[in-house]
Design a protein around this nucleic acid. Structure first.
Lengths: 145, 145
DNA sequence: ATAATAAAAGACAAAAGTATCTTCTATTAT
DNA sequence: ATAATAGAAGATACTTTTGTCTTTTATTAT
């Protein structure tokens, strides 16, 4: 099992792609994004529509339309993308899937995994959508399979 | 998304259950285990058969048969259970699902997630199958939903 | 207005994960 | 030997995730 669902992997990669492509204005079409991150175009379209509906990215219809990210949205934390797609069980759920697991009724792994979850949460809370734009433009980071 | 698959959650909980029930000898039947951890009996049976085939737990047929864990196996790390069921992508895979992601061709999250993965790996490597037996026998930890 | 471009939406399909059912085989107390 | 108990195994079914197809709607350059 991976940390994120495939849907979430596509979502994060697409958001990074859109961010660095439209940081200086303009829009980027779905075909461009799908090629840029190597993902199934029509499936990705659904994911981006969902993120757009939730206000995490923006879109513009018509000729020269496409997706983009508002400059102010570049500072949003990645945790919002993850939570929108995969929910918050990665941040708050019990590792052993126990609904009743808590401080007063812990599973054996409760304390150790709480520490891990907190680290993941902190990392995604402090990583922003636009923070890798320079490296992505310079080709220092990869978004392709 | 949870950290482990449902199959893996059942596996870990069952192994903990078997461990503390058979630490002083004896065997525990599938019905007992399924009730004890609240899981679908027939599905759990398949999971335990698989773990048994892989030598992570032991079983004994016939009347008074059932599953048990060799005393020497109580010190095995939990990572072996996880790896047997969910594979090793939690320990080594790229957070964004990129096959080519590596030190020389990193995804934007590569370094930060490597640290997280290492923490998870270390935790599961240093947590043993039998390490919660006392607390489980005293009811200090829960394995039920 | 029209044509071109692009997103939105709903239906559908394939694959993987989760769960169940039935039958068979092995073991052992009696 | 037989009955009881328990694991092994194969087939089947349900659910969720992942992916595709087709049609519709919105926008704007011309």
């Amino acid at each position: 099992m991976a940390i994120f669902s495939k849907t979430c992997e596509y979502a994060i990669r697409a958001v990074f792609y859109i961010a660095h492509k439209t940081a200086n204005g303009g829009r980027v079409g779905i075909k461009d994004i799908a090629t840029g991150i190597v993902s199934p175009e029509l499936y990705l379209a659904k994911i981006l529509q969902d993120l757009s509906r939730k206000g995490l990215i923006s879109s513009y219809k018509g000729p020269n339309g496409g997706f983009f990210i508002e400059p102010t949205s570049l500072s949003k934390p990645l945790s919002e993308i993850v939570e929108a797609v995969d929910g918050d069980s990665l941040f708050y759920g019990c590792a052993l899937g126990l609904k009743q697991c808590s401080e007063v009724n812990p599973c054996p792994l409760h304390n150790d995994f709480k520490a891990i979850r907190d680290k993941i949460h902190l990392l995604l809370n402090t990583t922003t959508v636009g923070e890798f734009n320079n490296e992505l433009m310079n080709g220092l980071f990869s978004l392709k399979k």
